[in-house]
């Protein structure tokens, strides 16, 4: 039982990282109907920026997190402006192929610049003490991951529902022409969406590095794909769906591991993807009132 709860906590921590990445996929899809396959690589870049901030500039975890989020926000906006914006009226397949190209470009660009060797996130930046709740030991890292990701998700909900830019994002994702008629600047709104989604991916990169300690230039591929599955699981384009999908996927993986099938852990996400596409293609949160961004 204790073991089970511990695995559950691990699953929720991992799942909240997936959720942070999935939010970027889903927000971007909601607004420009593009699966941004470069999103996992923004996550990777975020992990490296965090790493260099900590090792090179001797910053603490939170400043590193902020720098990584800011840099990724700018990076995301640049990707959109340079690679995707010229294709806004092109076919979807053209945009998709471009996204894959951008993804490869970032991965191998990173290898070209700094080499392919992995780095180890410094230990000791996160609280090492664990807490015991009802006899279950929860690591300080897990708690930190949970705190950071839930905080960011709450901030995101606030932005999307209470601020002007958030309302513009919802309007554009629902009906671009109608949004234009309100005087909303669609280009800026799309940029803001990329900025926010990429900042979340950057944060996910840093806490991922802290949790798994090892980072490398191709590290974004698998978490990126899994976060994509999480977004589809929740219902692509739906913000609460991405959060729930990420958490659920993390928990499923942890339980599969706990049941003794840890070799299957990476595969189970894709089983989930296939099942959801067969039985509920709109996702868990699809169909009912769609809250797309």
């Amino acid at each position: 039982m204790e073991q089970f709860i511990q695995q559950l906590v691990n699953g929720i921590s991992l799942g909240s990282i997936y959720a942070l990445i999935a939010l970027g996929y889903t927000m971007v899809y909601g607004i420009v109907k593009l699966i941004n396959f470069a999103h996992g690589d923004v996550f990777m870049v975020g992990a490296f920026i965090g790493f260099y901030s900590i090792t090179f500039f001797h910053l603490g975890l939170f400043p590193a997190l902020l720098i990584s989020m800011t840099a990724c926000a700018i990076f995301g906006v640049l990707i959109e402006r340079i690679a995707y914006k010229p294709l806004r009226n092109a076919t979807r397949i053209a945009a998709l192929i471009t996204a894959i190209g951008v993804s490869l470009f970032i991965e191998y660009g990173t290898i070209y610049i700094r080499g392919a060797q992995p780095e180890a996130y410094p230990s000791g930046i996160a609280p090492l003490k664990s807490i015991e709740i009802f006899g279950v030991k929860i690591s300080g890292q897990s708690l930190l991951i949970l705190a950071v990701s839930f905080f960011l998700m709450i901030v995101l909900q606030f932005i999307v529902h209470k601020t002007k830019i958030g309302k513009a994002m919802r309007a554009v994702s629902h009906d671009m022409d109608a949004a234009k008629l309100m005087g909303i600047n669609v280009n800026n709104t799309i940029s803001a969406t990329f900025a926010i989604g990429s900042a979340l991916a950057g944060a996910a990169g840093v806490i991922f590095g802290m949790y798994y300690t090892k980072i490398e230039p191709l590290m974004g591929i698998i978490p990126g794909l899994k976060a994509f599955v999480a977004a589809v699981l929740g219902g692509i384009g739906i913000i609460p769906g991405a959060m729930a999908g990420g958490l659920l996927l993390g928990v499923i993986e942890a339980l599969v591991s706990a049941a003794g099938f840890s070799l299957w852990r990476d595969g189970v996400a894709f089983v989930v993807l296939i099942l959801i596409l067969i039985f509920r293609p709109a996702g868990l949160f699809g169909k009912n009132v769609r809250e797309k961004v």
Partner: peptide
């Protein structure tokens, strides 16, 4: 006011009106 109304269906009446005053 476009053909077919084009209200933001995922938002409340109030939010729609707010968006009208966006600028």
């Amino acid at each position: 006011v476009p053909e077919g109304r084009r209200v933001f269906a995922n938002m409340s009446v109030e939010e729609n009106l707010e968006l009208g005053a966006f600028l």
